[in-house]
Simulated assay, not measured.
Amino acid sequence: MKSKPISLVLATFVALASRAQDTDLLKGVADTTPKKEYVYGAFKSTRVIMSHSIEMLRPGVLDFRILHRFGNVNQGISEFFGLDQATTRLGLDYGISNNLTVGIGRGTLKKEVDGFVKWRIIQQSTGPKSMPFSLVAVGGSTVVGAPWSDPARKNLFSSRLGYYGQAVIGRKFSERLTLQLSPILLHRNFVELAADPNDLFAAGFGGRLKLSKRVSLNVDYYYVVNQNDARTELHNPLSIGFDIETGGHVFQLHFTNAIGMNERAFLTETTNRWGKGEIQFGFNISRAFQIAKKKT
């Protein structure tokens, strides 16, 4: 009878020792619980060519962007196939947070200043509660700085302003392929003709095909839905280019029929036609600087 308490103590001790041993063994086993992972690298840059991509700048990163576009290549040798002419845009974009980027730029075409705010609402992810796509909202404005074409007319500063709102919906299907749709609504306070709409709607399409570790093929296109039909000189902008990553730079070579380099300009002033060889060669350079301390 006296052995029962001793047996009970021994059994309890063995059970506790076994449990502790199992815990020690589990420490060496990897945690196989699925984790949510966000998808990055859909595009090399925050722009496809003309338009915003679903990519965002990291917090504290300042992106200095140089956009350079020559004249039409079909002008022949007298204009050195367009290389004698050029328009440029200089821009600064800054990542405030993982999901918020702001930017400002100034272009030589119509001496226009533009700015934007870009907010990522949804980010594509894998694992628990995954999302199959990314959703980004962009709001921006433009200010034309060129002298008025008719100084005798009563001209208001508000007539220089334009605004746009855009949704960018995209998905990185694989390491090689990314596609996105980007509907946009553009408002202009001033239009050239009475029949021109102040509110212009366009449907954008962008894509990236990775060709190698550092090179990708990009396509950027907009279909303007409600353009004034009488303006037969206006066409939908199409750009095709190659992204080349070289260290901290992203160097982009492209061909386009778009003359302007911001949303107001390329949606309302694209007078060139690909079918007539009215194509401009250009390049974009993006250089990112980490100017704020990275958050750990």
Rank of each mutant, 00 (worst) to 15 (best):
G60C: 10
R69D: 03
V102M: 12
D63C: 05
G60P: 04
A42R: 02
M50G: 03
L62P: 04
G127W: 11
F70Q: 05
V48R: 03
D84C: 04
R106H: 14
F116A: 02
E112L: 15
N98T: 08
G71K: 00
V102P: 01
I121D: 09
K129R: 12
V48M: 02
L92Y: 08
G107C: 05
G41Q: 10
N72D: 13
E79V: 10
I121M: 15
G82L: 00
S53P: 07
D63E: 11
N72A: 12
G41C: 10
I49H: 05
S125C: 09
L109G: 02
R69Q: 11
R58D: 06
K129C: 00
A86V: 14
G71D: 06
L109V: 14
F81L: 11
I104K: 00
V117S: 02
T101M: 15
R69L: 13
R47I: 03
N98D: 14
I66E: 14
Y40G: 01
G115E: 02
R106Y: 13
Y40Q: 11
L62M: 13
G76P: 09
F80E: 01
I77M: 14
G91A: 15
Q75S: 12
K110W: 11
S45G: 05
F64A: 12
A86T: 15
L109F: 13
L100M: 14
G91D: 09
Q124P: 06
I49K: 03
M50V: 07
G115I: 04
L100P: 06
I49M: 02
K44Y: 08
S53Y: 01
V61W: 01
I121G: 08
T101I: 08
I104T: 09
E55T: 08
R58L: 09
P59W: 09
K111R: 14
I77G: 10
G115V: 08
Y40V: 06
S125H: 06
I121S: 12
T87V: 15
S125A: 10
S45P: 02
R47A: 00
W119E: 04
R120P: 04
D114G: 09
S53I: 02
T87S: 11
L90E: 11
G107D: 06
F64Q: 01
G76C: 13
P59Q: 11
Q123G: 01
V117K: 00
V39M: 10
R120M: 14
E79T: 13
Y40W: 12
F81R: 02
V73S: 09
D63F: 02
D84E: 13
G127Y: 11
G105I: 01
S97P: 06
T101R: 07
I66K: 03
T88A: 11
G82K: 02
F80M: 13
Q85N: 15
H52N: 11
S78I: 14
L83Q: 13
G105E: 02
L90M: 15
E55V: 02
R47P: 01
M131H: 08
W119D: 05
V113L: 14
I77F: 15
R69P: 00
M50W: 01
A42I: 03
I54C: 04
G41W: 07
K44Q: 09
T101D: 08
R89G: 04
E55D: 12
D114V: 04
L100K: 09
S51L: 00
S97M: 13
D114W: 03
G71L: 08
L62R: 00
